[in-house]
């Protein structure tokens, strides 16, 4: 097609209009898109603005939850109806906050107690560290049953702390596969 190949100058519409105005292209030779783009031009670009960070009130509750309590374990993502323990905690916290009966400074402890009454046991980082120390002692005594990876701190602490019997299951699982 005839016309300037300087794509940075104007838009395709203005460049084609230039061709038509100057007579370089006859009106009946104009491309199919011309009438459409002229009738429905691109929408103007909104002005630039600073991109804000997105934060929600529950973020602060969740941050304090993870600061205080150890990771409560895996969450089933396939089931959308089941809520994870941190989510339950956040919901309960906001619920208690909404009621307004509890003092803001006591709200966090109240939430923990409220969940404990339902059987959700939360382990703090200190408790977990203590439990890990204990399990490491037991691990050393049964060194033959433990692979080198599981003795490394932090890699599979969930398995170690929660149920030592599960560790044996995993071992068995690998044996079956191999």
């Amino acid at each position: 097609m005839a016309g300037s190949r300087r794509e940075s100058v104007g838009s395709i519409l203005t460049r084609l209009q230039g061709l038509l105005r100057a007579g370089a292209m006859k009106a009946e030779d104009r491309p199919i898109w011309y009438d459409i783009v002229k009738a429905k031009p691109p929408k103007p670009v909104p002005p630039h603005r600073e991109v804000q960070k997105i934060l929600y009130p529950e973020d602060f509750v969740r941050a304090r939850f993870y600061k205080t309590y150890a990771d409560p374990g895996a969450t089933v993502l396939s089931n959308e109806n089941s809520k994870s323990i941190p989510q339950k905690f956040v919901d309960r916290y906001l619920e208690l906050h909404g009621k307004g009966e509890t003092e803001p400074s006591r709200l966090f402890e109240e939430t923990t107690q409220s969940l404990a009454a339902e059987g959700v046991r939360l382990i703090t980082h200190e408790e977990r560290a203590a439990a890990r120390g204990k399990s490491q002692v037991t691990n050393k005594s049964q060194a033959s049953a433990v692979t080198p990876e599981t003795t490394e701190p932090g890699t599979s602490e969930k398995v170690k702390v929660k149920s030592p019997s599960q560790k044996v299951d995993i071992k068995g699982l690998f044996d079956e596969k191999s």
Binding site: P47, H48, R49, V51, K53, I54
Partner: peptide, 8 residues
């Protein structure tokens, strides 16, 4: 940047 709602 005009089309970005925010940074999460």
């Amino acid at each position: 940047s005009p089309y970005i709602f925010g940074e999460r």
